[in-house]
């Protein structure tokens, strides 16, 4: 189940430097477009549990909408206070304009 590729969106669904939230088999996942490359992380901020898909993408950083905690999108690494616990990241692939996510997560070290 976790290792399956799951269709989550079309590439047209996510503007460049933006994010959307999707549900993948009951897991809240944020899918990002960073300069045409697509990434996926867990969608819940590890600090105060807000949806990151409501936040702001700045280059390869996602900023939480509530307290402006920041994470590095490709690795999920926290980028300083108020966040200190990394996000789970998920593998993505794009085929024929469709974005797929696989839920076997990996996690960068916390700060």
């Amino acid at each position: 189940m976790a290792g399956e590729w799951r269709l989550v969106a079309s590439t047209d669904d996510i503007e460049e430097e933006d994010v959307i939230g999707v549900d993948v088999a009951g897991t809240a996942v944020a899918v990002y477009n960073v300069k045409g490359k697509f990434y996926a992380t867990e969608n819940i901020c590890t600090h105060a549990f807000a949806f990151l898909s409501e936040g702001v993408v700045i280059d390869d950083i996602i900023e939480c909408p509530v307290h402006q905690g920041r994470f590095h999108i490709p690795t999920g690494k926290p980028k300083g206070a108020p966040v200190s616990v990394a996000l789970d990241t998920y593998a993505t692939k794009v085929e024929n304009g469709k974005i797929y996510v696989r839920l076997d997560e990996s996690r960068a070290p916390d700060s």
Binding site: H47, A48, F49, A50, F51, E54, P65, V66, H67
Partner: peptide, 20 residues
């Protein structure tokens, strides 16, 4: 203090006024 419930309410209140 920064509980999931409190922050979910905060974000919902923001969205009532202005969409993302």
């Amino acid at each position: 203090l920064t509980s999931p419930e409190a922050n979910a309410k905060l974000l919902a209140a923001q969205r009532e006024i202005v969409s993302r």
